[in-house]
Design a protein around this nucleic acid. Structure first.
Lengths: 140, 140
DNA sequence: CTGAATCCCCAACGATACTG
DNA sequence: CAGTATCGTTGGGGATTCAG
């Protein structure tokens, strides 16, 4: 099996301990998962991508749609996503100016996975709350 | 469609703008996705869960396995995951003491999704780098 | 070996005000 | 409307030390 091609759960189970280099190792170099996490793992990127998964949207609409995000952070987040090629920015020369953001094909390819995460979050909301309660109980 | 049951990409496309409350909205309450992000969206949780997806592992082994994590952060991260019911902690009364960490069923259910993310990261490593290069070029 | 406690710093983030 | 600029805060997390 060649690394940097595909990683399935079963592959992971099969990998040997000796020279595994795909993730979570102290190899000298960079870990692609670490990179993505540093990038998309911030406070807002996932929520913005998730929202744009519904379709293109303008700045102000996004600002209203994403709960709690500030104007500044929306700008910063969108710039980051644009820079990484996940989001496309299109300026319409109107008055007043309007800018539309949309997912690129790359962004869409990510959307599927984080949608899965979102589903998981909704589905297991209760389980986590319950686990927390049990934990608190065990530790006074 | 009832919220808090299942969210598929197609569902997302179909949702109306009026009273959508599943995510990324300024509704008065809590967003499950926001919650999970605050929890698992930290610097290390995903990598630790990913690693434990390969099988149970002891503290010291995890410390070596997860690139760059400090002793303190491994402890903190594991506590958080344990508290949320994603990780099980088992103490063996030996000398010296040994503690084994493993994924709970809930943790395994999450594993699938973040493995998908890991795959995506590996697969699109190059695309992102290329997008970044193009972006830097366009903006001097 | 596992892990708690302490100290400290910096980068991420929020609020606000200003511009084209 | 869509940003940019500036400032202040905070808490995440790294290094280190101590303990069972």
């Amino acid at each position: 099996m060649d690394r940097h091609t595909e990683v399935t759960p079963s592959d992971i189970q099969e990998m040997n301990d000796g020279v595994d280099t795909w993730v979570a190792n102290d190899f000298s170099g960079t870990c692609p998962v670490r990179d993505v996490l540093d990038r998309v793992g911030d406070k807002w990127s996932v929520l913005v991508v998730l929202r744009l998964g519904r379709g293109p949207e303008r700045f102000r609409a996004l600002l209203r749609a994403v709960a709690g995000i500030s104007q500044r952070m929306l700008t910063v987040t969108l710039r980051g996503l644009e820079r990484d090629g996940l989001v496309h920015r299109e300026v319409f020369d109107t008055r007043p100016p309007s800018v539309e953001y949309s997912l690129t094909p790359l962004g869409h390819s990510l959307l599927g996975h984080i949608t899965g995460l979102a589903n998981w979050a909704v589905e297991h909301e209760a389980d986590i709350a319950q686990a927390q309660a049990a934990y608190s109980h065990k530790h006074d």
